[in-house]
Simulated assay, not measured.
Amino acid sequence: MEKSTIKAIKERFHTGNINEEWLSHLRQDGRKGVQQLIRSYERQQAKAQELKNKFLHMTRYEQHGYANGKRLIAGVDEVGRGPLAGPVVAAAVILPEDINLLGLDDSKQLSEVARNKFYSLIKQQAVCYGIAVVGNEKIDQVNIYEAAKLAMHEALGQLDPRPDHVLADAVPLTGLPCSSEAIIKGDAKSISIAAASVLAKVYRDELMKEIHHSYPAFDFASNMGYGTRNHMEALKRQGASPFHRRSFAPVREVLQR
């Protein structure tokens, strides 16, 4: 068989017109460039298989629910429990059973670019989703844990159709009209919770960027309300903004000085 040029081989890899017979023939080709192309292809294949395996692993809670007759399984998660300023945001989402979002993960493990990509894909492909915001004043009234639960309940309440089972990230939710389970580190174990974490994270980040325009000294667009050094220095210098959580010790201590 006549040898193809390396350019032609590269183009064939690019188009995906590949079979084992052709690869077996290429492996006998001693040209360095050809062997580099094969290694690159094999690395890509291994990475793709790793993503598939991870995705399958992250659907095990959903698959267990489907096997038990559940058809509308919602994942719910919240973000923003730790910051000194801004709201806590929760999202709930029901994904179709045949969803295929390879690479989706806990929002904290994704780059901003990846989160934004999945944010759009999830909204496009979800059966339904809901996003709820509980502001800093309510957080100060009821405490952050209760505020987070309130946001999760509100996000679930927006779902239409209603779920027949709920997977929640770590927080046990009571009073739901369907079965539920709390999964420790669920955003890394359940694809539905991971999807909810992305929706909540991107939505909250955008809110903090908007707040930044009114209070740029606190650099909310970068720190998202967390107590970074620059944030704390601005807090001590300027006092609290209307979006600071006054029940949180670092803010309270500054206000008492």
Rank of each mutant, 00 (worst) to 15 (best):
L26W: 06
G33S: 08
G33Q: 10
V34I: 12
V34F: 11
Q36M: 14
S40T: 14
A46E: 15
Q49L: 14
E50P: 09
H57V: 10
M58P: 07
R60L: 15
R60A: 13
Y61N: 05
Y61S: 06
E62W: 10
H64E: 15
H64F: 14
N68G: 11
N68Q: 15
I73R: 04
A74S: 06
L84A: 12
P87Y: 02
V88Y: 02
V89N: 07
V89M: 08
V89D: 05
A90N: 01
L95I: 01
P96K: 05
E97W: 08
E97H: 13
E97Q: 15
D98P: 02
N100L: 14
G103L: 08
D106P: 04
S107P: 00
Q109L: 14
L110Q: 03
V113Y: 12
V113K: 14
V113W: 10
K117R: 15
F118M: 02
F118T: 01
Y119K: 07
Y119S: 05
L121C: 06
L121T: 11
I122M: 03
K123W: 01
Q124F: 05
A126F: 00
A126C: 12
A126W: 00
Y129E: 01
Y129T: 01
I131S: 00
I131K: 00
I131N: 00
G135A: 09
E137D: 15
I139R: 06
A148F: 02
K149S: 11
M152Q: 09
A155I: 04
L156I: 04
G157V: 07
Q158F: 01
L167H: 05
A170D: 12
A170F: 12
A170H: 10
